[in-house]
């Protein structure tokens, strides 16, 4: 249960086309992450799947059933919102059980399911509190609890962690991953944090201006980006993009090389460069260098690589890790 198929899904608000014909298959039990820059239509696509927006064209199938015209509650999906969207005047138990109550489930069964979900999410002690009396992480768990009790075919998350601080975000990220492993339910997760995308996803869908640029496993996107957009979007720090004479020497109008795929040497190499800034992070050192005839580049070095701003060094791109792009920005294979 939980295979979602999008066929030529389109969405326009008045004249403005926000989603322009998306085809996508989300396999049962997979964890799919939508990433993309702000305003590219991630939330809109998610809301289309949820049924909170009407399609302007195309079809949405869940487990082979056409749900394009179905009301949100009839699609058997649960959604976790960025602002949690808990009902402020209801306590935690009522918040979690509200959907079941609306579905006309008997009291005792609701209580049992709420208790189960609360136990799973460490919320048992807070069942009588109101959302206003909870911390951000607890509220997030209540929102997830509300999604779980309905035993949906798929979970939809819209940037659920963006309101949390860094430490809590890591913890909740792990909890959601664990939840996926124990429930094995399809999850669709929207984020613009690529660390979340790379760590959580089975499949990443990179969106740009309402189109899918590339969909695939995290490592596939990292190793074989289909075009410049994906190459620049996935990976941190971003890939170095070089064009002009240097790129021509490698046989393409534009080439890309990731900071971690540049070999460093103080004595010899392909490109000569001066260090302008060195960021020592302990485990890594990020060097911002100025390469002769190429321009600024980012390089990742070991944590104990000792250089100072102004030092000269040599860089050699790993030829097997070099990405070549044609004039349109598509990868040359």
């Amino acid at each position: 249960m939980g295979r979602i198929v999008l066929e030529k899904v389109r969405k326009a608000f008045a004249e403005v086309v926000v989603i322009s014909g998306i085809d996508l298959v989300i396999e049962e039990g997979s964890f799919v992450v939508f990433v993309g820059p702000s305003g590219c239509g991630k939330s809109t696509l998610l809301r289309l799947i949820a049924g909170l927006e009407d399609n302007s064209g195309g079809k949405i199938l869940i487990d082979g059933m056409d749900v394009t015209q179905a009301a949100p509650a009839k699609r058997g999906l649960s959604m976790v919102f960025q602002s949690y969207a808990l009902y402020p005047h209801m306590n935690v138990a009522k918040n979690i059980g509200f959907g079941l109550k609306m579905a006309g489930m008997p009291r005792e069964e609701i209580d049992r399911k709420v208790a189960n979900a609360a136990a799973m999410l460490n919320l048992t002690d807070y069942l009588n509190r109101r959302p206003g009396q909870l911390s951000g992480g607890q509220r997030q768990r209540v929102a997830i609890g509300r999604a779980i009790v309905r035993e949906p075919k798929a979970f939809l998350f819209d940037e659920p962690l963006s309101n949390l601080d860094a430490a809590l975000r890591v913890q909740m990220r792990l909890e959601i991953t664990r939840l996926h492993q124990s429930l094995k339910t399809t999850m669709i997760y929207v984020t613009h944090d690529q660390v979340e995308a790379l760590t959580m996803a089975d499949q990443i869908v990179v969106l740009n201006r309402g189109n899918i640029e590339q969909a695939g496993a995290p490592l596939e996107l990292y190793e074989r980006p289909k075009n410049l957009f994906v190459a620049k979007f996935i990976g941190s720090p971003t890939m170095n993009i070089i064009s002009g004479a240097t790129a021509a020497r490698y046989g393409a109008p534009t080439i890309g090389i990731r900071p971690e795929h540049l070999k460093l040497s103080t004595t010899s190499g392909d490109w000569k460069a001066q260090v302008s800034i060195a960021e020592h992070l302990g485990s890594d050192t990020f060097l911002y260098v100025d390469a002769d005839g190429i321009g600024p580049l980012t390089v990742r070095a070991d944590g104990d690589f000792a250089v100072k701003p102004g030092d000269s060094l040599y860089l050699s791109p790993d030829p097997t890790r070099l990405h070549r792009f044609d004039d349109k920005g598509d990868a040359i294979r």
């Binding site: 949820a50 949100p72 959604m79 919102f81 602002s83 969207a85 509200f98 959907g99 609306m102 309905r150």
Partner: peptide
């Protein structure tokens, strides 16, 4: 009134 709460209520199937 918060739009996301409206959406949440829709997902919860409240007529």
């Amino acid at each position: 009134f918060d739009q996301e709460q409206k959406d949440a209520a829709q997902m919860d199937g409240a007529p």
